[in-house]
Design a binder for these strands. Structure first.
Length: 423
RNA sequence: GUGGUCGUAGCUCAGCUGGUAGAGCACUCGGUUGUGGUCCGAGAUGUCGCGGGUUCGAGCCCCGUCGAUCACCCCA
């Protein structure tokens, strides 16, 4: 029989890598939680129309990357390609925007895009994101950026940079796009590129081909068209980022892939990742709520790619061997039942315990204890059960001391807490 | 979706101009009475990604396919 394989392009994590994945995810989530963001756990599939309208019909995501299918009731369903649209839907549906503003939520989970896979770009991938809805204030833009930056710093990342820009309000963008389209009409580009430009002229700023870059170097810049209000907001963002010691560069030709962005937009790019360098991105989306049938509320948020952050940490040599965190390993000699009962008793007291199963010789059992990474080990055999005394051995030093079985739990708990204080 | 590279034991890889597979690490057991990490010895493990073809004979050549990877489009 042919072996089953995971579907093409999905990312999945098994030991020992899974522990690194878990660490990245929990660090990102923690950074959101300390800033007062609360969990939303949302479905991975939604009405197709939600993404078509929310993400934007002109985007590649909607045009060719969505996993769309018909469910048994004939509804068109799509696996979520990003998080913001679903959050907006939930906020509107559950009237979260009727209370105190801003609504601050975070989410974490799998997302789906039907692209040609490569390292750092998967068909099922993982993101942690936050959204702050209902406050049009550059300070909240900065808070959102700071949540991401704090997480990256906690994760030990150094080789990344924050790029920011302002996309202006929708009126500004409209008038600017007229200018840009006029400019593009006057340069020489191939038919396919022109078609892309017709869909979204901003895309040409992102093109990697030198001749296109050269042609676009003389293009009008959106930043020059900002209203005084937008310009002031953008200046405030920069001022506060500086005050927070968050390094950034202004990239006035940055393009975001989703249509809903307005005002502040940002991207975190890692320098050691090749073409898939963005480890996170986000910005302000002031028209989105209304566009999805909610009230006129502004919003700002980001999505951070767990898979790519993990690759970035790996590239920076930050993936140290995982520690098991085990406190005790039990090596049974012919008394498997008693060993399991003891292990469970200790586990119920909150001690992290593993044990050898099956008939192992003492030497093999001790090898297992060694490999388990546990701080202590005991051998449990007929002698110990008869005398009620075990030798508690500290694996690193090799020292052992006699402890009665009855006192073992308390002894371990005391040693563990002392150990913690000396760290 | 377009183009390039790659696919050999659990992992990292070797395999000369085609003659039916190897190393290191890891794993299991042992080095005589109940204590691991070093050392020594022994052992198990692969339909050489999958399917066709050429050939007396293919891991090595050809075609297809699946997957990974790199770049593009695009993006987390």
């Amino acid at each position: 029989m042919a072996k089953f394989q995971a579907p093409k392009g999905v990312s999945e994590y098994v030991p020992d890598r899974s522990s690194h994945f878990d660490y990245v995810r929990s660090t990102l989530i923690n950074s959101a939680q300390v800033a007062g963001y609360q969990l939303v756990e949302l479905p991975v599939f939604e009405d197709t129309e939600l993404f078509a309208r929310g993400v934007g019909e002109s985007t590649d995501v909607v045009r060719k990357e969505m996993y769309t299918f018909e469910d048994r009731g004939g509804r068109s369903i799509t696996l979520r390609p990003e998080g913001t649209a679903g959050v907006m839907r939930a906020v509107i549906e559950h009237n979260l925007d009727r209370g105190q503003l801003p609504v601050k939520v975070y989410y974490s989970g799998a997302f789906f895009r039907a692209e040609r896979p490569q390292a750092g770009r998967y068909r099922q991938f993982y993101q942690v994101g936050i959204e702050a809805i209902g406050l049009a204030d550059p300070r909240i833009d900065v808070e959102v950026i700071a949540v991401a930056d704090r997480a990256f710093k906690e994760l030990g990342l150094k080789n990344y940079r924050l790029e920011i820009t302002s996309l202006g309000d929708s009126a500004t963008r409209e008038s600017y796009l007229v200018e840009l389209r006029a400019f593009i009409a006057g340069i020489e580009i191939d038919a396919e590129t022109r078609e892309r430009a017709n869909l979204n002229p901003l895309r040409l700023f992102d093109d990697k081909r030198p001749e296109i870059r050269e042609a676009m170097s003389k293009a009008p810049i959106l930043m020059d068209y900002l209203t005084p209000e937008s310009a002031a907001d953008f200046a405030k963002v920069q001022e506060l980022l500086t005050a927070l010691n968050i390094d950034f560069v202004v990239n006035n030709r940055m393009v975001r892939g989703l249509d809903y962005y307005t005002g502040t937009a940002f991207e975190f790019a890692h320098t050691d990742l090749g073409a898939q360098s963005a480890i996170g991105g986000g910005g302000r989306y002031d028209g989105l709520m209304a566009q999805l049938g909610g009230q006129e509320l502004s919003g700002v948020g980001f999505g951070l790619g767990i898979d790519r952050i993990l690759l970035a940490r790996e590239a920076e040599g930050l993936l140290l061997p995982a520690e098991s965190g085990l406190d005790l390993y039990i090596v049974p000699l012919g008394v498997g039942d008693a060993a399991l009962l003891l292990a469970e008793e200790l586990r119920n007291r909150g001690i992290k315990v593993d044990l050898a199963f099956g008939d192992k010789a003492l030497k093999g059992g001790m090898k297992s204890a060694d490999k388990s990474g546990a701080r202590y080990s005991i051998v449990l055999g007929a002698d110990e059960l008869a005398s009620g005394v075990v030798h508690l051995k500290e694996m690193q030093t090799g020292e052992s001391s006699s402890v009665t079985l009855g006192a073992l739990a308390n002894e371990l708990i005391e040693r563990i807490s002392n150990y913690g204080e000396h760290l």
